[in-house]
Amino acid sequence: MSVCAKVSKAVLVAAAGLWLAASAGLTDPAPRRVVSVNLCTDQLAMMLAAPGQLVSVSHLAADPQSSAMATEARAYAPNMGQAEQVFLMRPDLVLAGTFSARAGIDLLRRLGVRVIEIPPAATLDDIPGHLRIIGQALGRETQAESLAAEFEASLDQLKINAPPARAALYYPSGYTTGAGTLADAILRHTGFSNVAADLGLAGGGNLPLERLVMAGPDVVVTATPYPGASRAEEILVHPALKAVQSRAGSAEVTDADWICGTPHVLRAVRAMAEAREALGGPRLTQRQEIR
């Protein structure tokens, strides 16, 4: 019994020592071979990494429909995110999303690779924080700080304080996003309320076309269809949706800028701020006159 306890204690001590050595050895100097396996950490890393520091980004990063930095991403080796492929790149730091394939991330950790996981941004305020976390991990604190400050300043400039107009996000198969999502935060920052959130939806979910029509939003934001055809995307050209859009007078489209919590979100924020100004100009001045 006591032998057993001694052995396990020794193992523990050894493991702790190893862990300390490993973490000390890895955190002190900036990592030299960084691999990112998540579309959003890909973009943050590409913005912040020193030349040569970032080795590989996920294959999605080069897809213009998902990634706001598709051109830049072609300069890096693409990965599919599986532990085997990533480990063979001999990374000293792996950047992942919290929704990345769990088994692969756990395996990389067991193999002694340092992994930093970033949750998906749920608000615009998360973005400077994520920039700083990645900046620190890459040893690029100064760059991260200046990007974060620049982002916060631009975001402040684009803030619209107005009685909210009603916007609906509408994607293939009637999918939409409600409260607690980045798209919802973009809408609220630019003087809109999100119809799906008003109907009680938190996170993502389906909104039947009938209920969208009945809600009568001022703006409908839809998605760009992919190449090839799908029944799911046919809803985006449904005559009833077209009628709602033409009545709203504005048809905004989401793109790669909406997906990830990076400074590129500012382009989406700017587009929505312009849509809000185009829509509510007279109403805004009216309110101001009353005051």
């Binding site: 293939p172 198969s173 009637g174 076309l209 992919y226 190449p227 090839g228 055809a229 799908s230 029944r231 799911a232 995307e233 046919e234 809803i235 449904h238 005559p239 009833a240």
Partner: peptide
Amino acid sequence: LSPNPFAAAEIVFWMMGSLADRSMT
């Protein structure tokens, strides 16, 4: 084989059928 990410999920539709979101078109 379709380049569209939604297409593969629609095998179920073609095998089981649905009238959801059909239009006058």
